[in-house]
Design a protein around this nucleic acid. Structure first.
Lengths: 184, 184
DNA sequence: ACCATCTGGTTGAACCGTCAACCAGCTGCG
DNA sequence: CGCAGCTGGTTGACGGTTCAACCAGATGGT
């Protein structure tokens, strides 16, 4: 990482911020995952897959589009869909226009599972995040996250690696506002 | 989860904050982990273990204390130490005063590995976090994280589960300021 | 002293994610 | 056309985390 000469160590105030961030984000993630696992028996990343599918036309999406939408690598998504197929929540259909391609389709059972999971998930997000912060803090947090995303998205997408061209789609997706309500 | 009657869905501004937070924290974590994996061939959680040990008297710590310090479950730590032992970076020694207990000790090789890993890790943290945010944003972020921790730490520790009594120790540890410099 | 109980720590299976290798189908250019 | 190279997607090995079950040593009450 552009390893200069002498490392710019963190001063004590910086260290405080750093530790607080590490602890808070890790605990918050773990808590949300734990709640979701308890109430819906699925990891958050699978929940996201179901949400994205539920909000797409025909409740169906190309694998690559779904990978971008859920910020997951193609490999991860492939494994995830395999698992969701086992559960009967998603089906794979080959794409007519491009014979390499595949579409993931949400089944009725999958939609039902999502509807069942959503209320307690949203409650969990409220409890652990929104209910804790003041309106000003929420506004600040949004600014901070947007700033970080401006830095991170180009890096990730330039590493052509798995997720391609997330930038515009991600930016776009941050506005239309979907998520957390299974059907709009 | 105190699942009330009708779920309090997120409004569109809340959804924006939520998505921004999910994207930003996930990408930031992944980027930091990736950098550390590339430069030091270890996951962040192992790095934390080495740091905590390096800053303890005799570079040694009881397993349970180490688990608390690194916010990890006893099980996770046990597996981690097993791996670090294979690498020759940590040794397990039975505790003289309590024969159930075990101490983890950082070996010279482990200390060297940490010294080698630290500069580029700290650079990575600066690049992706500190260099991106203004001083005000950093102050806000600290407040936000502290607030979330006030909420989360009691929950986690009350679930007597793995990590015991993290609260005071964690709170205390957030001040003395350690981390990221292998030797103060 | 005795037994129940708690605490410190380990173990193994199941699961999710990553990485690198791979295959198949599309695309462009000589 | 023919072949190189790209793209969409899958696969399998590997590594780390979780969860539940478990063992051994400490503790406390009677």
């Amino acid at each position: 990482m552009a390893k200069g000469k002498s490392p710019r160590w963190l001063d004590s105030e910086e260290r405080r911020v750093w530790l607080a961030w590490v602890f808070a984000t890790r605990l918050l993630w773990e808590e949300l995952e734990r709640d979701l696992q308890r109430d819906a028996a699925m990891p958050f990343s699978y929940y996201e897959v179901l949400v994205m599918l539920s909000e797409s036309p025909d409740r169906s999406l190309r694998m690559s589009a779904l990978a971008d939408a859920t910020q997951s690598s193609r490999s991860r998504l492939s494994h995830a869909i395999a698992r969701l197929e086992e559960l009967g929540w998603v089906e794979r259909r080959s794409c007519p226009t491009d014979r390499r391609g595949a579409n993931a389709v949400l089944t009725p059972a999958g939609f039902a599972a999502l509807e069942a999971a959503a209320p307690s998930h949203v409650e969990s997000v409220r409890e652990h995040l929104f209910d804790q912060l003041s309106p000003e803090q929420l506004a600040q947090l949004r600014e901070i996250c947007d700033t970080l995303l401006d830095h991170l998205l180009p890096i990730v997408s330039s590493r052509g690696d798995a997720r391609t061209q997330i930038i515009e789609r991600a930016r776009a997706r941050l506005d239309p506002a979907l998520e957390d309500a299974p059907a709009g």
